[in-house]
Design a protein around this nucleic acid. Sequence first.
RNA 1: GGGCGCGUAGCUCAGCUGGGAGAGCAUCUGCCUUACAAGCAGGAGGUCACAGGUUCAAGUCCUGUCGCGCCCACCA
Length: 883
Amino acid sequence: MKKELAKKYNPKDFEERIYKYWNENEYFKADPNDEKEPFTIMMPPPNVTGNLHMGHALNNTIQDILIRWKRMDGYEALWLPGTDHASISTEAKVVAKIRSKGKTKEELGREKFLEEAWDWTEEYGGNIRNQLKKLGVSCDWSKERFTLDEGLSKAVEEVFIRLYEKGLIYRGNRIINWCPSCRTAISDAEVEHKDSNGKLWHIKYPVKDSDDFITIATTRPETMLGDVAVAVHPEDERYRHLIGKKVILPLVNREIPIIEDEYVDMEFGTGAVKITPAHDPNDFEIGLRHNLEQLKIMDDDAKINENGGKYSGLDRYEARKEIVKDLKEQGYLIEIEDHDHSVGHCERCSTVVEPIISKQWFVKMKPLAEPALKAYKEGKFRFIPERFGKIYVHWLENIRDWCISRQLWWGHRLPVYYCKDCDEVMVAREMPKACTKCDSNNIYQDPDTLDTWFSSALWPFSTLGWPEDTEELKYFYPTDVLVTGYDIIFFWVVRMVFSGLEHMGDIPFKNVLINGLVRDSQGRKMSKSLGNGIDPLEIIDKYGADALRFMLVTGNTPGNDMRFHMERVEASRNFANKLWNASRFVLMNLEDDIVSEEEAQKYMEEEDKWIISRVNNITKEATENMNKFELGIAAQKLYDFIWSEYCDWYIEMVKPRLYGEDENSKNTARYVLLTVLKDILKLLHPFMPFITEEIWQHLPNTDGSLIKAKWPQYQEEHNNDKAEREISFIMEAVKNIRNIRAEANVAPSKKAKVIFVTTDEEIKSILDNGRNHFANLAAASDIEIRDNKEGIGEDAMSAVVEACEIYMPLEELVDIEKEIERLEKEKERLEGELKRVNGKLSNEGFVNKAPEHIVEKEREKKKMYQEMMDKVLERLEALKSKK
RNA sequence: GGGCGCGUAGCUCAGCUGGGAGAGCAUCUGCCUUACAAGCAGGAGGUCACAGGUUCAAGUCCUGUCGCGCCCACCA
């Protein structure tokens, strides 16, 4: 006999100890194994310096459930963890730290800055790992990777060089999104568009050598400093006569041409557009078409530069104010119109992004996007739920080249070298000794680093050793499931797919399971600025990791957001408590020797067969739902079964046997209690790993960890329709008796006589077999089963279950008025049911077209309701006539 | 401008491929019954947003309307 379970369920007593036990025994390790099928999940790497938030908790709980389940189900299940260097976000933190010491990163210099950044990483990098462990994640820590570690950096470099050599990476002067606060270029995906109430300034530009003028409209008047043309639509009658003429740019007094271009929308604004190729993506394109100058008027910190004349040195918004003022004073400003439009903000720091021309590195996307689209459309991988595939397709179909260079220091430095003497560009694995063109050795490396997502895009294979052709790569790639939030489908999912296809020649994953956001109880996003975030660690501390995990996964469906309610955590904790106590009950009733299955079979009662049949069906249903990634439904089914069937009914039914004298019956009950509990623990383990393991360790005949236990399989021979029918009938009858007792206020302890009246032989036998249950569960004494109701007076309360009447002669306790009321209500209910059933059955369409088994079911119902109705009516009449 | 999601019991949400409306919490009644008061037993509470349509049958499929939310977009 093993040691007893603690009297109270207190997750703090064992969660940490159990995690250590798993980890030290290397139960999470997975390695290439020819005897098993692989099952792989790559953990979306959290920011290395980040802290665990609810989103992580949800995301990793889902992954852990899947991986634990598959591991038990016989797969070589690898869940590979890791962290992301998060270039822009980590750099910002380190910069802030340096600033607090009164220095700038430039003053510190690149080398020292990186030292600081590595220190920072080491200091905070362990946090998230330990926090994940508290959640119970069963990932293979021996394979943990970091996007900036040596191997992954090698992969990044290799990819850059290969794409460059293929002509898929190029350097160009193009319009990019510039964040003046982060002082770096960012990609389109990193720009967050927000609607804002802006203005449309109408400004007139005088036509040279004429009194005429042309009015343009702009939302960013300050950019006029960089205007090099005014464009109108070729078919616009209003302006046709002006095409080819010049205008004098106000305030600047520069002569610029009026050109024609089809891009211009005649309906919008005034139909005339100022063209600023250096500061607007459309203007940039027009500029190229018309061979216009690209006049840059802003610095990296969004101040007007030397090209801005008297405005130079002003911040962009100060300049705007000044320019508008001057235009007004000089009579050029015609109108200020309210104009709502959307403005791009830096996703990271919320600063308004400035479209600006800049020499950056880009990935040519079209050739990479096409195979990625094809793979999805051919069903090589899928989204769960399906609808997120649309986001994927839409993004890829409208993709533009990806700006990958960042003016940051924390990240993978571009393997690009320049010759100072002849400006030759060299892309190489190592710094060239001499310029390949002019032989100069005046060479320097590009100071820029790569977009963080450039390395994340390689995660599914770089983590397995690519570009080396490792055993791990061959065995575990492609991975099976990617679990992630919908917010990074285009940041990450898209890029992993085209990277996998390009470099591995295969998709990176077969399923993309999308999880929603965890919001606060009012439905708001949890955010630092709102201060409404709930710390998963606090929840774990108070309620245990199992409760948090269970809460996160129930009542939720893939892809949908959920709200965090403390009451739901409590409910999950209560469920864990229930399981704990049920297990304690089982344990305290076991003896050292558990009888064999064969022995138990000989003495099984109906309730034993019933619960075995039930757990068998639940196994099937739970597994089916998990196969569909419906973890919430699977969890709910387990919850209902454990609480409402195993605990509420089976344990209660079996108590008299455990306390009785019949050793065979007792041992059989023990055997069944334990066997079913073991299945329960196995099925629940992926969801609640700690409590199930802790209980498992206390059960007899359990060698080693529950992690190693075999996932239960559905077994046809355990199905028992007869037992299910009998026990559910008994349960119905017990409920009715309890109901009568409650309504008549019969104290629970008080024994009461129960008379069953039925002519149905099957029911009679069920009732006869169930005598003990009625005594035990409904405190019924003197159970009588007969086929007529002679002699039962009006001083009894009654109920009807199928073809069986139940009478409880309660004499003075019976209030006839109340009893009539009860029966009237029952009559009403039956009338409703009969009306519905009759309606269906009298409908020719239904009888002819509905499947036979559905029609048959309705016929049976009709018969049953009719019989019940007859009995209720008879009883009512008898009572009324006696009154 | 385009796309998507949601609207089911007082609250938070399940309800998968159409075939008798569910859970948790809250509420009401009775119970500290030696596994569990973090519990047990019993009860009340819903024209499944609205309007059409398809179907023998619609919370479930289609169309439209209203309300809430989200995403995308080079609307000077």
